[in-house]
Amino acid sequence: MSRESREVIRVANIVKDFRPGFGLRRKRVLHGISFSVCEGEIFGFVGPNGAGKTTLLKVLMGLIRATAGEATILGCDVHETEFRRHIGFLPENPYFYDYLTGREILTFYAKLSGLPRAQRADRVALLLGWVGLSSAANARLRTYSKGMLQRVGIAQALVHDPSVVFLDEPMSGLDPIGRKEIRDLILRLRAEGKTVFMNTHILSDVEMVCDRVAIIVSGRITYEGAIEDFLEGDQRESDVVVAGLRPETGVQLEEKFGASLRGHGDRIEVRTADKNVNPMLGAILEAGGQVLSVTPHRVSLESIFLSAVEQDRADEKERER
């Protein structure tokens, strides 16, 4: 995704303080958060529980006011209302009026979103189909399961065909099939040119669907970048599984390529830190060995995430001292 694309979401030095209770000292939960999201991107906002992900999303939705800083969506201040015709929002563990049916609740949100009357019924029926709720459309929401309510939440976020969609833990409460369907839905949104901002702590989902990611820990962004930057650029080592390797060839691999060997019998695993494994593979084949598999290992989002959390804990201990 080109960074020259139109900036759709801009967050500049957002600070948020909360007072935990009357007479208690203010607690800072967001420490000057800044980033931007461009048109057509799927942006993953990743962090552990309590990191400030939902708080930032609430600032963007105008549900809470930032103590300092500026946030705009589609060039409009987040406290304006008119631009919200172009945005959709799925909160974490959404709750809806349970006395309404699936069809009634989507019609209600369609009305609030300003969808013209002539389009409402068709659009609602389409969305119910997208999220797999057509057969339950006329049942009251109080009879829905958690996963079904999550699907209603996604449908209401998309009912007015917004160009920017904010999803807070969209896979929450869904079974593996439901998660895959929602992932496919997000990818469909990208194909339609929509911008998606996704709060999550499920890293595999981020790796599968996001273009860019920011990691937030204790109210501070510790990493921000394109997914491919670390999925492709940080390959560190490779494992080669070999059969029929003679002992003297093993010694040669250790000396010449800095490889480490482990295993027993006929199957040996050769690990090398060299990014280019071709010379080593050539040496193995020349010596009569048989290459069974080659597995490149790279720095995963999980390892970046975990090191950011560990670093934060170390910083916290340092501050306490």
């Binding site: 939705m61 105008g62 959709g88 709750y95 609030l112 939440g153 209401q156 904010f166």
Partner: peptide
């Protein structure tokens, strides 16, 4: 309390 207000106020409604 039930957070129904979250989705409603995310729509173009003051």
């Amino acid at each position: 309390d039930r957070r129904t207000v979250y989705t409603i106020l995310s729509k173009p409604l003051s």
